[in-house]
């Protein structure tokens, strides 16, 4: 398996949450992911993109950039970036159940899910400077059926 990368740029619209997670799901297919690995990544992408749309842009027009790459050893790196309002207190935003949008019935569990479903999570943000979420996950890279001995 060769290393691979892709870049996706899309409008900060709720309908693009499904689009983004399905794109990443298709991108990781050469890693022959297990159902669990695939679902973990889809869920983490959904959380990060939703955060960008709801918190970064708060319904305003904007763009989300998603970078995905994997190495020959099967390590997936994802970067989800917005140019929105940024986060004042990252540690507080990452606390489970902390939300600034209870009126939207947000649970404040987005970062906790990302942390739990991926191997590593890093959040880079400052007020007015947007937010970049970096996540990493090692895939088991089980052999494809066609690679197994007959």
């Amino acid at each position: 398996m060769k290393a691979n990368e892709m870049r996706l740029r899309f409008s900060a619209l709720p309908e693009n949450e499904a689009f983004a997670r399905l794109c990443v799901s298709a991108f990781v297919m050469p890693l022959n992911p297990t159902v669990e690995e695939n679902e973990d990544v889809k869920t983490a992408v959904s959380e990060a993109v939703t955060n960008a749309i709801i918190h970064g842009y708060d319904g305003r027009e904007g763009e989300v950039t998603l970078l995905a790459s994997y190495s020959e050893s099967g390590v997936l790196c994802l970067t989800i970036e917005d140019k929105g309002c940024g986060i004042e207190d990252i540690a507080r935003a990452m606390e489970p159940m902390f939300t600034t949008r209870p009126e939207l019935e947000r649970s404040g569990m987005g970062f906790a899910v990302m942390e739990n479903f991926m191997d590593a999570l890093e959040v880079i943000s400052a007020p007015g400077k947007g937010t970049t979420v970096c996540m990493r996950k090692q895939f088991a890279c089980l052999p494809q059926k066609s690679e197994l001995p007959a």
Partner: peptide, 13 residues
């Protein structure tokens, strides 16, 4: 078929 943390808010609401 799929749920992210948005589902938590829906259930708790």
């Amino acid at each position: 078929e799929f749920m992210d943390s948005s589902g938590i808010g829906v259930i708790i609401g």
